[in-house]
């Protein structure tokens, strides 16, 4: 089952058309990366998923049912622009947000105490939010997002604005929550954070879903039959290539390392390596797999 399914979403603002028939399938249990350049429509989609905005056209379903008013109890949302009431006490503020999400007073208090203990915030319960450091305020915000133990978590640019230590903490929490079976969606315009974290991604460009699937699937789909062989030698030596393979580049790459690049059939790796291995002292052999960033550039430019 999908945690979230969107079909043909359209959203027009006064002066621009933010979503142009966006389709999206987010499998249950996935750690889903929502990629795209600034202004692609990521935040608009996220706001629609959180029922902050309503789409002009299209349908959106949460766990197989139309997105309704009680969806807020099943979703946790950390917006890109984060903030708390500055004059309010930390504990009270967290209690307020938890109660808005439907937690009872006693549940909210119990869970908050546990989280505050875990992240060493106990002493801050009665302090004002304005006394917190930025990193601590971010921790409190994260806690209030996940406190009601929602099945689906949506983070808009979760790593922007967090300092490196807290970003790492958040990253670990995200992986932990995902292991526990929660579905996580997060948007980012930084591709490098995606490959190590996500199981699935979707690329949004100009309000449309231009590329989506599991990371492995996407990489497999975009294999181009490029291979690189690195071997130990001072200078390129002449190589006997098997049939169907074509040398595209051959040069010294570093001290004592030469790289030879080939184009061959996609599933030819074994035959290629078998033919080449006896000829040189192999240092490394790999299929050149496009990075998500490459895929993104290719897809956007191809469109």
């Amino acid at each position: 089952m999908n945690a979230l399914t969107a079909t043909g979403l359209h959203k027009r603002y006064a002066s621009h058309h933010a979503l142009r028939g966006l389709d999206m399938e987010i499998p249950q249990g996935s750690l889903f990366g929502l990629l795209g350049p600034n202004g692609a429509g990521k935040t608009t989609f996220i706001r629609i998923a959180n029922r902050i905005l309503a789409p002009d056209e299209g349908r959106i379903e949460l766990f197989g049912a139309p997105l309704g008013p009680d969806a807020t109890k099943r979703i946790g949302y950390l917006p890109e622009e984060r903030g708390l009431y500055k004059g309010m006490k930390v504990g009270e503020q967290a209690m307020y947000l938890a109660q808005l999400r439907g937690l009872s007073t006693s549940d909210a208090k119990q869970r908050l105490r546990a989280w505050f203990e875990r992240w060493e915030l106990q002493g801050w319960w009665d302090k004002k939010v304005s006394d917190l450091s930025k990193g601590m305020a971010q921790k409190v915000q994260f806690i209030t997002t996940v406190l009601h133990e929602p099945e689906l978590l949506i983070f808009d640019e979760p790593f922007s604005g967090f300092d490196p230590i807290n970003a790492q903490l958040i990253r670990e929490e995200m992986l932990r929550l995902n292991r526990e079976g929660r579905t996580l969606i997060f948007s980012t315009h930084r591709m490098e954070s995606v490959e190590e974290l996500c199981s699935h991604i979707a690329l949004i460009n100009q309000g449309q879903n231009v590329l989506h699937g599991s990371i492995q699937e996407l990489k497999d789909r975009h294999r181009s039959g490029q291979f690189v062989l690195r071997y130990r030698s001072e200078d390129p030596t002449s190589l006997n290539l098997p049939e169907g393979a074509e040398l595209t580049d051959h040069r010294r790459e570093a001290q004592g390392i030469v790289a030879a690049r080939f184009r061959a059939e996609i599933d030819d790796a074994s035959r290629l390596l078998a033919a080449l291995a006896p000829q040189v002292n192999v240092y490394q052999f790999e299929e050149v797999v496009p990075s998500i960033h490459d895929l993104f550039v290719q897809t956007v430019q191809g469109a």
Partner: peptide, 16 residues
Amino acid sequence: IEEKTSRIVEVLVTTV
């Protein structure tokens, strides 16, 4: 204005 500038409003409107 306070809710808007502190950006808490975006979290609030998901539940209210």
